[in-house]
């Protein structure tokens, strides 16, 4: 492992979130969860950061700011999207001032679902991001994260196979 994935620095940008994810993310930094154990440091300047944590869906005014923050980060960089608003808009998907989910603006590597995710889930997401960061550093091109839809059908062995195929198809779409 290289130095940066042993001690990744994180910059956090709150796009449009209701503060739930935000505050839970800050709670990860505090004694009870203490992500600094992993060498993770929360920095204010995107130019120092390896991982961008985004919370909330993007509104029209945020688009420019988010692109700017992302562009200022040095390569390789990983984007972690916390909460359902970042991946689909969640309950706010139909609001008029929502531009869309984060992947419309910048490529996202890890989605952490739930509203808001528990700090444990956030730690999982960031640990997953570290692996992606390491592979990006080695020059690998990583695909954007998928959002598979779970589809269940009445229990019949014959129908199980097409269900799995459909789930994979929807995930790629």
């Amino acid at each position: 492992m290289s130095a940066s994935s042993k001690s990744p620095w994180i910059v956090h940008y709150n796009c449009n979130s209701c503060n739930g994810c935000d505050i839970e993310f800050v709670a990860c930094l505090t004694p009870m969860y203490d992500v600094e154990r992993f060498g993770i440091l929360h920095v204010g300047n995107p130019k120092h950061a390896d991982i961008l944590v985004v919370t909330g869906s993007v509104n029209h005014r945020d688009v420019r700011v988010l692109r700017n923050v992302y562009a200022q980060m040095p390569e390789p960089k990983v984007v972690v999207a916390l909460g359902v608003c970042t991946s689909s808009g969640g309950i706010f998907a139909d609001c008029y001032n929502i531009f869309g989910d984060v992947s419309k603006v910048i490529p996202v590597d890890v989605y952490v679902p739930a509203c808001p995710p528990r700090p444990e889930a956030m730690i999982d997401g960031i640990v997953q991001a570290l692996g992606i960061l390491e592979r990006k550093r080695a020059g690998e091109v990583m695909p954007s994260a998928a959002k598979p839809v779970l589809t269940l059908r009445p229990t019949a062995a014959a129908e199980a196979a097409p269900a799995a195929a459909q789930a994979a198809e929807q995930g790629n779409a």
């Binding site: 991946s87 969640g90 309950i91 989605y111 509203c115 959002k147």
Partner: peptide
Amino acid sequence: DKSWAFDRYRCIVC
């Protein structure tokens, strides 16, 4: 064509 599709990337866990 009965099915139950759940998008956990939309679910707000209410």
